[in-house]
Each structure stands twice: as C-alpha cells, then as structure tokens.
Amino acid sequence: MGVPIQLEVNGQTVRQEVEPRLLLVHFLRDVLGLTGTKIGCDTSQCGACTVLMDGHAVKSCTVLAVQADGSSITTIEGLAQDGKYHPVQEAFWEAHGLQCGYCTPGMILSVVDLLESHPSPSEAEIREGLEGNLCRCTGYHNIVRAVQIAAEAMGK
C-alpha cells in the first residue's frame, strides 16, 4: 500500500515509499527529520507549514506527500546558500521580525515567494501578501519592516 515517490528536497533527491495519506509536512518532519517546517493548525489557516514547492509557497499540511512526487521542495533548512542567509532571513533578524520563532520559517518562505512576484511591494501589498501566515507575537509590525528591508536589499 506504500506509494513510491521521488522528489528533490533542498537540492537532494529523495526516494521513499509512503502511505498515501501521509501529509507532506509529516513527510518532511517525521520521515526526513526536517523539523524546521512547523505545524500550527489543522485547517490550513496559519501558514506555519509553508514550504516552496517548485518555487511557489504552499501549505505543506494541505498537500499529500504523493502529490509532491516529482516536485522540488525548499524548506527553511535549504534557504541559506553557501552558509549565507537569504536576504529575507537577514531582514527578519535585522528588523526583529520574530519573537517566539514558531511562525518564522513559514513566514520567511512565504515572503520569499511574495517578493518573487512583487519585488517592491507597498505596505498594503505586504500586509495582504501575508494573509496566509499568522503570527501571534509581533503584531506584524516588524515583519512588515523586515519585508521592506529584504525588498530593498534584493532590489540592489
């Protein structure tokens, strides 16, 4: 009853047989040990489980691992390159865009995707763009600042 899947996770090819009902987020966390991706709800609201799937931000709690067969996944562990933080990671640190850190991996990946489609977003676009990610600590103020800082850094 296991279904064989093959996908690329943070640049590494992964082959595995999985139960069809296995959620991508559990595949990443429990099977691959990539626990940077978080689970914050069970109704696809909070966005803590956001990863990049073929370059787009998706909620990995609402994707079956079998649906990710053949895709390329980037988790928070795979975002920094050559030991250098991604500009969005830098900006979250710089702007104090996180407190407890639990929403942060999903938030950062969501912002990476947002800045892909909106390289220099207005404040309203940033706030709208974050609607799929909940944060209970920051009131979003410094997250918005972080996105602005990252947008500027990436625009240079």
Binding site: R29, T35, T37, T75, F92, E94, G101, Y102, I108
Partner: peptide, 21 residues
Amino acid sequence: IKRREDPKLITGRAKYTDDLQ
C-alpha cells in the same frame, strides 16, 4: 542590538518540543 536567539530560529534549527525525537 539584534537578538542572539534569531539565527537558530530563522534557519529552522531551533528545536521545539514536537521536533524532539
């Protein structure tokens, strides 16, 4: 000053209870 907690949090290295195995 910037928080020293953040590097582990922005890279997904921080271990919360459910991350422990």
